[in-house]
Deep mutational scan, measured.
Amino acid sequence: CSVCSEPIMPEPGRDETVRVVALDKNFHMKCYKCEDCGKPLSIEADDNGCFPLDGHVLCRKCHTARA
């Protein structure tokens, strides 16, 4: 995971895991958050999703503030 540096592995008792890929980086679902404010990001293409800027994973509000 690009945030916590832990491997993305299935939880005990499970055969599969879910990971998020954004900007060629891999994330646990729980680690997929705005780099500035820490708001959890949605994997859907909506207002709560990722608004990347200069290689950073940001929420819409933080993207607008940086732009």
Rank of each mutant, 00 (worst) to 15 (best):
D54W: 03
C50V: 11
I8A: 00
R66N: 08
N26C: 11
D15H: 09
C37P: 00
V57C: 05
F51N: 05
K25Y: 03
S5H: 03
G38E: 14
M9Y: 06
L53H: 09
P40D: 13
G55M: 04
P12T: 13
C50R: 04
S5F: 11
R60I: 05
M9R: 12
C62E: 02
R66W: 08
C31T: 00
C59T: 00
S42G: 15
V18N: 11
K61W: 11
I43Q: 13
C34W: 00
V3D: 04
E44W: 01
R14K: 15
R60S: 11
P52W: 07
Y32E: 02
D54Q: 08
A22K: 15
D36F: 03
E35K: 07
S2Y: 06
C62K: 02
D46N: 15
F51M: 14
D54H: 07
A67T: 05
S2C: 02
D54T: 03
V3L: 10
R60D: 05
C59G: 01
H63R: 05
I8P: 02
G49N: 10
I43L: 09
M29F: 07
I43W: 04
K25C: 04
L53D: 06
C50Q: 03
V57A: 14
D47R: 10
V18H: 15
A22Q: 12
H28L: 00
C31W: 01
H56D: 02
V57M: 08
K25V: 02
H63T: 08
A65Y: 13
A67F: 04
V3Q: 03
A45N: 14
A45H: 15
P12Q: 10
K39H: 09
G55V: 03
L58M: 10
C62D: 04
H63F: 12
V18F: 13
F27C: 03
R14I: 09
E44P: 07
R19Q: 08
V21K: 15
L58Q: 03
R19P: 15
I8C: 03
T64G: 14
V3H: 03
G38C: 12
S2Q: 01
H56V: 06
N26Y: 13
K33D: 03
V18P: 09
A45Y: 06
R14L: 13
R60M: 03
H56R: 13
C4Q: 01
F51R: 09
M9W: 05
D15A: 05
V20S: 05
D54F: 05
V20D: 03
M9A: 08
H63S: 12
F27V: 12
S5R: 12
E11F: 08
V3F: 13
D54G: 08
F27W: 02
V3Y: 13
L58I: 05
V57L: 12
P10C: 09
S42N: 14
S5N: 01
P12G: 15
P10H: 07
N48L: 09
D24G: 10
P40R: 10
I43A: 13
E35G: 05
D54M: 06
S42F: 01
A22F: 07
E16D: 06
D46Y: 05
T64R: 11
C1R: 01
E11W: 02
K30E: 14
D24C: 02
R66F: 06
R19A: 08
A67P: 12
C34T: 01
K39Q: 13
V20A: 07
I8F: 03
E11Y: 09
P12F: 14
L23G: 15
P40G: 14
L41G: 03
M29S: 14
Y32V: 02
I43T: 13
D47L: 05
S42Q: 09
G38H: 07
T64H: 11
S42E: 11
K30P: 04
L58G: 02
G55R: 07
N26K: 10
N26A: 13
N48V: 06
H28A: 00
P10K: 13
Y32W: 07
C62N: 00
C31P: 01
R19F: 05
V3P: 01
M9D: 03
H56C: 09
R60K: 13
T64E: 13
V21F: 05
S2E: 05
K61V: 10
C4T: 01
D54N: 08
S42C: 06
R14M: 15
R60G: 05
F27I: 08
P40Y: 12
D36A: 05
V18R: 14
P10F: 13
D54C: 05
M29V: 13
H28S: 00
R60Y: 10
V3I: 07
V57T: 08
D36V: 07
D47Y: 04
E11P: 06
I43E: 14
K39D: 10
V3T: 02
H63D: 04
R14S: 10
C37G: 02
N48M: 07
T17G: 15
